[in-house]
Nucleic acid binder design. Structure first.
Length: 366
DNA sequence: TCTGGGGTCCTAGGACCC
DNA sequence: TCTGGGGTCCTAGGACCC
């Protein structure tokens, strides 16, 4: 039996929240993001701002040049989180099978609702109306028989969109669209596909599997399937977080010194605090550095004893920094993250113990 | 034009173990 | 003296997503 999947996506989310909370911003070109003089980029642009060609991820310095009346607002992630939770709760009132992708979008498997008598279009309109009535935010929905179709459909309808792809119409819906719209096709893959003359999703659908594999490697098979509207991936609620990180870009490049070391401590403390709040204990700690020339490197260490202590993490990444910095190096970004979370194990007396791991690393320390 | 911050997943080589 | 094959873990980098 065919599934019915919604991809639901709040339009220009951060910018819309700012316009919602501050009526003076309504109808104006608004962007959310860091200041142009501190290497900020556009995190979200209102539709008024988009008329000037302003887009997400664009350097703020470029955005303000494109529109002299642009209003820039610094991000308020706590507020976006609040509204996101409200919207996700509305989604959850339709089905427990929701898979959030970010603060502003989610997949919903509403197959049970359709089997229960709802038609797809009224159900989608009902959801859009509830979100609008309860929060003031505008929701776009794409509906189809799988995730990939639903995602592309919601992209097509924005803003305030509702695009439904009927079962059996997947391939013909996708065929004329640019290959870049497929999930997993970014700038690099697009260029490779284009080099073989594949510009539309239909071109990809007709291409030989061996050609796709040569172009994009092992993802070729899946790419071929997605291009023909085939996607069996289930909607998965409750995805466990696999890493926690924090990074910062400096307004000006920084050599090694008290400022850089202080940033490293702050980031370590932030990561540790979030790990503790989530009840996560990492085995692996990662230092990330971006040089003035934008070259980016990472160095990681597996701990003899897993820890989410801020001082431990700071010491480890500090040691990693010692090992790679050379005189004259300047950095524009530094980041700390942790991964490989350990499952707490109960001991005989009922206490929670964290396993020491791996034995090989411990023996090296003896 | 000068490029954020939060993530996920994949690849590939080397160490190590049996 | 010359030497395999399979499996897992660790590390580093890169593409991609919002």
């Amino acid at each position: 039996m065919a599934r019915t999947i919604f991809h639901a996506d709040l339009d220009a989310f951060y910018a819309s929240v700012e316009q919602l909370d501050n009526p003076e911003l309504r109808g104006k070109p608004v962007v959310v993001g860091g200041p142009p003089e501190s290497r900020g980029v556009v995190a979200a642009a209102s539709y008024e701002a988009r008329e000037f060609g302003i887009r997400s991820a664009m350097p703020m310095s470029q955005a303000v040049r494109r529109c002299t009346t642009l209003v820039r607002v610094p991000p308020r992630f706590d507020r976006y989180g609040e509204l996101s939770r409200e919207v996700m709760a509305i989604f959850r009132s339709l089905t427990p099978l929701i898979e959030p992708l970010s603060l502003d979008e989610a997949f919903l498997d509403v197959t049970n609702r359709i089997d229960g008598g709802w038609a797809v279009e009224p159900l989608a309109r009902h959801l859009k109306k509830r979100v609008r009535d309860d929060t003031g935010l505008v929701l776009s929905i794409g509906a189809g028989t799988n995730k990939s179709i639903a995602k592309v459909a919601s992209d097509m309808g924005k803003p305030d969109g509702l695009v439904i792809v009927k079962p059996g119409r997947e391939a013909s819906f996708l065929a004329p669209l640019p290959a870049r719209l497929l999930w997993g096709v970014g700038p690099k893959a697009e260029a490779k596909l284009r080099s073989a003359g594949l510009r539309t999703i239909g071109d990809v659908a007709e291409a030989d599997a061996a050609v796709l594999e040569r172009l994009v490697g092992s993802r070729g098979v899946q790419l071929g399937e997605l291009s023909r509207g085939i996607d069996e991936r289930p909607v998965v609620a409750e995805q466990a977080r696999k890493s926690i990180g924090a990074e910062t870009t400096f307004p000006q490049d920084l050599p090694d010194g008290p400022q850089l070391r202080s940033a490293l401590h702050t980031l370590s403390a932030r990561v540790a605090e979030r790990a503790q709040r989530d009840g996560k204990t990492p085995r692996t700690v990662v230092l990330k550095l971006r040089y003035a020339d934008f070259r980016t490197i990472t160095r990681q260490t597996t701990l003899a004893a897993p820890s989410n202590d801020g001082q431990v993490i700071a010491n480890v990444v500090g040691g990693l920094l010692d090992s790679i910095v050379s005189p004259g190096d300047e950095f524009r970004l530094i980041g700390v993250s942790c991964t490989q979370f350990v499952e707490p194990e109960a001991t005989e007396d009922g206490a929670i113990a964290l396993p020491l791991w791996p034995a090989r690393e411990q023996s090296l320390l003896l």
